[in-house]
Design a binder for these strands. Structure first.
Lengths: 213, 213
DNA sequence: ATGGCAACGGAACGATCTGCTCCGTTCCGA
DNA sequence: TCGGAACGGAGCAGATCGTTCCGTTGCCAT
């Protein structure tokens, strides 16, 4: 069991498959959360047993994928929090979430597996970070004051629903419509009137993590 | 076979069921386009055979439902076209489409049945009407000039993706986020920069009507 | 009254799909 | 040389869904 400098041989191939399988699962389930596990195997170019050697069930794979997504969310939020200008910080954050399609990896997958405490924990961190970025931009007077942080997931959800064409076009279209959202979120937009209705409550957002009855 | 003034008896109940079944199908399939036909029967308070007496197949029911949706679209667009102020006309139009959830009745159902020429025809009318309303608002300088009419379905799609809570809350949330979209669509928003990327082509939008391979 | 029939409810069937197991095979590495 | 780790994929068991079919109900014309 020495550390192999050159990665060849069966052992190394298996190690590399770890990443290949996760990447394939990411692509497949982001495109269709209901995809069968055989689609992941086909996309990864491996057999089904290669999946089950690594994850005891489909649910475990989804849970891992979601954990990755939450981790990405936190990473993106932390990086965006470092940006000096409050508006740029906010834009960097939202754009990062949308471009990485983190919403498809987290909320779209929620309800398909029983969340662990680790999920809850990361989700709490994530929303705290997002809250900070939004509040700072609002205090600076660059983001409209009637936007609440629970509104943000609804914006990710809207942009994640854009699924026209191949991944490249999807990215391009989401960037296009994010421009519109951002223009509508600027403080100046309040001159056209305040937002109607009320933002979702955290409990309502959290309910999506429960298994369907 | 005289025309019954009072609607009772078995014959009349059947006639009333026509409407009940269509309404139930609308509710069920708008909430979940993959819903089984038994869910429609249950929601209508009717047996499965009552459905099959009226529609030879699930596909036929979906086709009828979609035709209704396209008809609603045209009706809403015509009414909005009568509004004098170009901005109000545009807002009335988009708000009408979103509130009636026409997108869920048309595009979400597309691809699940083979469209008839009547579908194509109504869809063409619909997009021509929408095009006219948008162009008028743009000529009047109230809607940003870099928005194309093929962008509009993407906006409906985004708002149709908001599905949190019961129908009432969904309506409220969609109105809330439509406010943001509309603020971002005003001509003044162009001062923050033009839209990136390119709008979908009509062919790309039309491809969604084809059955999945 | 009563026979005919339109309308209905819902069990049951066949087809499809999907998560998962299992077994035979390959081939690395000691 | 050989034990065993890793693999591919056929196949199983269960679930789901569209559709059919049959027995029942109750209106209506005679």
């Amino acid at each position: 069991m020495t550390e192999p400098a050159v990665l060849n041989g069966r052992r190394a191939q298996a190690a590399r498959n770890n990443g290949v399988i996760l990447a394939a699962a990411r692509d497949v389930f982001v495109a269709d959360p209901d995809a069968p596990i055989s689609a992941v195997a086909r996309s990864a170019g491996v057999g089904i047993s290669a999946l089950y050697r690594r994850y005891p069930s489909k649910e475990a794979l989804l849970a891992t994928l979601c954990l990755d997504g939450l981790g990405q969310f936190v990473t993106i939020a932390r990086a965006a929090g470092e940006v000096a200008d409050p508006w740029d910080s906010f834009v960097t954050f939202v754009r990062g979430i949308v471009e990485a399609d983190v919403h498809s990896l987290t909320v779209y997958l929620a309800g398909r597996f029983t969340p662990t405490p680790e999920h809850r924990d990361l989700a709490a961190q994530a929303s705290a970070l997002a809250d900070g970025i939004l509040r700072r931009a609002q205090r600076a007077g660059v983001v409209r004051a009637d936007l609440e942080s629970t509104d943000l997931p609804m914006i990710y959800e809207q942009l994640a629903a854009i699924r026209l064409g191949d991944p490249d076009q999807i990215r391009e279209l989401r960037a296009r419509f994010l421009d519109i959202h951002l223009a509508g979120l600027r403080a100046a937009a309040t001159s056209y009137g305040n937002l109607t209705g009320t933002a979702p409550t955290p409990a309502e957002l959290g309910a999506r993590w429960n298994r369907p009855a």
